[in-house]
Design a protein around this nucleic acid. Sequence first.
DNA 1: TTGAAAGCGGTACCAG
DNA 2: CTGGTACCGCTTTCAA
Lengths: 317, 317
Amino acid sequence: MATISDVARAAGVSRQTVSNALNAAHRLAPDTLARVTAAIEALGYRPDPTARSLRTGSRHAVAYPVPPDNPDRPNALMGGFLHCLVDEAGTRGFRILLTRTDRASIAEVIAARQVDGFVLSDVLSADPRLAELDAAGVPYVAFGRLGGSGGWVDVDSAAAMAEVVELLVAQGHRRVGYLGAAEDLPWMRDRRAGFLAAADRLGLTVESRPLPDALRAADRPTAIVAGDDWLGLAGYRMIGEAGLVPGRDVAVTGFNDLPLCDLVSPALTSVRIPVRLIARVLVGRLLDRLAGGPTPEHGALVAGELLVRASTPVRQG
Amino acid sequence: MATISDVARAAGVSRQTVSNALNAAHRLAPDTLARVTAAIEALGYRPDPTARSLRTGSRHAVAYPVPPDNPDRPNALMGGFLHCLVDEAGTRGFRILLTRTDRASIAEVIAARQVDGFVLSDVLSADPRLAELDAAGVPYVAFGRLGGSGGWVDVDSAAAMAEVVELLVAQGHRRVGYLGAAEDLPWMRDRRAGFLAAADRLGLTVESRPLPDALRAADRPTAIVAGDDWLGLAGYRMIGEAGLVPGRDVAVTGFNDLPLCDLVSPALTSVRIPVRLIARVLVGRLLDRLAGGPTPEHGALVAGELLVRASTPVRQG
DNA sequence: TTGAAAGCGGTACCAG
DNA sequence: CTGGTACCGCTTTCAA
């Protein structure tokens, strides 16, 4: 492996000049630059980022703690998200370092100064990792809304739920049930709130009885809005157990647009999460901040995409 | 941030002694060790892996190129796999660095000496990345079988397919169709070969007509073995289009055990891939190699787990 | 515009 | 068992 000294020797200049050729080419005389560049080419020289990091203190790397995965309900979007993250960071010369999610592991990565910043996801309220990062002064951005700072990006679930409600209203639904779960998760709470707000605004009646009972009542809801796709399928089951047919008798919507939406019968109307865009904005905000830019005032909301499928058919009459 | 010099000064020893306390504690007098340890604690000193790497040349990091993800058919197992990978590597003091999969990116990571080795997946035959790694002498292990070396781990699809065939035979099936696709992918070819071998050994007749036609024939196959779960669902559709009912009229099996197997109706019999075990063996082999151990002669095959569900019911008569 | 010297934070080697 | 010295490969500072 060629070092900077090898190149300097080959080009008949000092090591500094080689360094300048790489980092501040404009300060070199044209012919010197040409000579150095030729030597770099000839020797196949690549500066060692480790040595550079030691000197400059910047690591050109970002950590992403990989959330644990429930094998029975894997996050099918994770692979795509990471691919996009790597891609977006890569085009700006940064790498993604995976870490465990526990506080100790994160503390270690910070203490070892292995990265310049963090990308977080699945952030809970009062997440201990945030305290850790704040205390150490390590910049981060989160996928999912945070309390104060503008260092976050999230799906605009309120807007998405409003679209869902508008769809149902347009299809003639007047009484709708909401199927939620895990409401300790901020994003699940957020979706419910978005639904309720839109339902209120558009004059939809929200079912208050437990859904299994409500579906058997004479004035049963004609649609169920679920907090995610898995819950949507739970809705299918409830509907079936009430002797009704999902889609035909009761419309259903999900959230996340997992691939199973197209597979189940009827295909499930859902909201697609723009993974690529989210990765881009996350990386953009973090790297801008690392570059010394100001922290944006507000978090960024990106629109989900409502995909209407057979589970929300146009109603006859 | 405390440095090794700070600790040395605080403990009244040289930097070298602090270094020894960390890396070769047995060479220190007990009381010196105690003094140094106390100083480390007091100052919260953590050695900087970047500086250490510069000196030793080892990065304590492993690269994993993230395969691109088809949004319409995401790899639902990726999140869990990466989590396991991080976990297994982490317990041995190694980190996972994500990279892009293209040859140029990999060449860059190698040239920049950013990792000690690679974990690969989705390796094609004559994969250009292998040439790159071999040429540079960078150690690697692959999820998925490789030509010569023992640096790989894979699911024993032949054994798994044998289990599938045995199940079908036991259930009274005599004529079975195979539904494959993307046979340029080694693992897909491997599954088909495993099926054919087992069918041959157990005297099963393999359907040779195109499945849509065969299902309409009088001597139609009574079961379909699919190369993966998505193909299993394609099988469901073919069966339905032939006026038959999957599970009841024609048994179906998949492969991978995606979560959708439990969701579809009938639930799809499939083979679960032991992701955690695979990650463990991959990391184990790579790190053993990095530690100077010998390369194993053979690749490792790990058993898949056949999960029998409603799509392969016990046959009446 | 170019170069010499110092140093980033550790570890290897060797002397005592 | 401990410490002095050189050095890993690069960039920053300051003179020439």
